[in-house]
């Protein structure tokens, strides 16, 4: 079913979803990319400080959150597959599950932030924490934005606003959500693990 030739052709012709979201995704990746490069530069000048501070991060919650986001991303793949067969209800359900996992991510992250702030750590503590907090908070806000976008699409899907022929909206939201996932997949090893 998924290998419907028409669908395959469409995927190869242009990136999935609205082209405008790709301009946005490109901009976002660029902003994060520059931040990642800046992180690498700052770390190169401060290896010891970065390694020492990194010890205090909660790698377990970071790892769980990686799984949560990847699973959530997979749910969006299923949502797109469902709508391509014209199944609005299952599509909405898959999106709802993806959003649900988004909440799980946020909850775990909030717990992590709470512990960090309780330890008296702020953006001005040191360069490592500046990056850690900036990058994760910045990403955190992207998760929220992604969930808002997904919620809007879910509601439209529930109202039967998409169909097998017209599902660009779902693909657009999925593309954005995959970007949020992708950013975390880079961010987690970079900030939490690599030393």
């Amino acid at each position: 079913m998924i290998n419907n030739p028409k669908v395959t052709h469409e995927i190869h012709a242009t990136p999935p979803g609205d082209l405008a979201i790709w301009v946005f995704i490109f901009a976002e990746l660029l902003a994060f990319g520059v931040f990642f490069v800046a992180y690498a530069f700052a770390r190169a000048n401060n290896v010891e400080l970065f390694n020492e501070s990194q010890q205090h991060l909660n790698r377990t919650s970071g790892a769980i959150n990686t799984l949560v986001l990847i699973t959530s991303s997979y749910f969006m793949v299923r949502a797109v597959a469902a709508i391509k067969q014209g199944l609005s209800k299952p599509c909405a359900l898959w999106i709802a599950s993806a959003i649900g996992l988004g909440f799980v991510f946020l909850a775990i992250k909030i717990a992590e932030f709470q512990a960090t702030f309780a330890a008296g750590i702020s953006l001005s503590t040191n360069t490592f924490y500046m990056f850690y907090l900036s990058l994760t908070l910045f990403h955190f806000m992207h998760v929220i934005l992604g969930m808002v976008i997904l919620a809007a699409i879910m509601l439209k899907a529930l109202r039967g606003g998409y169909s097998a022929e017209n599902h660009i909206g779902v693909e657009t939201g999925a593309s954005y959500w995959h970007m949020v996932d992708l950013l975390w997949i880079i961010l987690f090893p970079l900030v939490y693990v690599i030393r």
Partner: peptide
């Protein structure tokens, strides 16, 4: 604060 040097430069 110093972190503006990063935010300001990147953006």
């Amino acid at each position: 604060p110093e972190y503006w040097q990063w935010f300001g430069s990147v953006f």
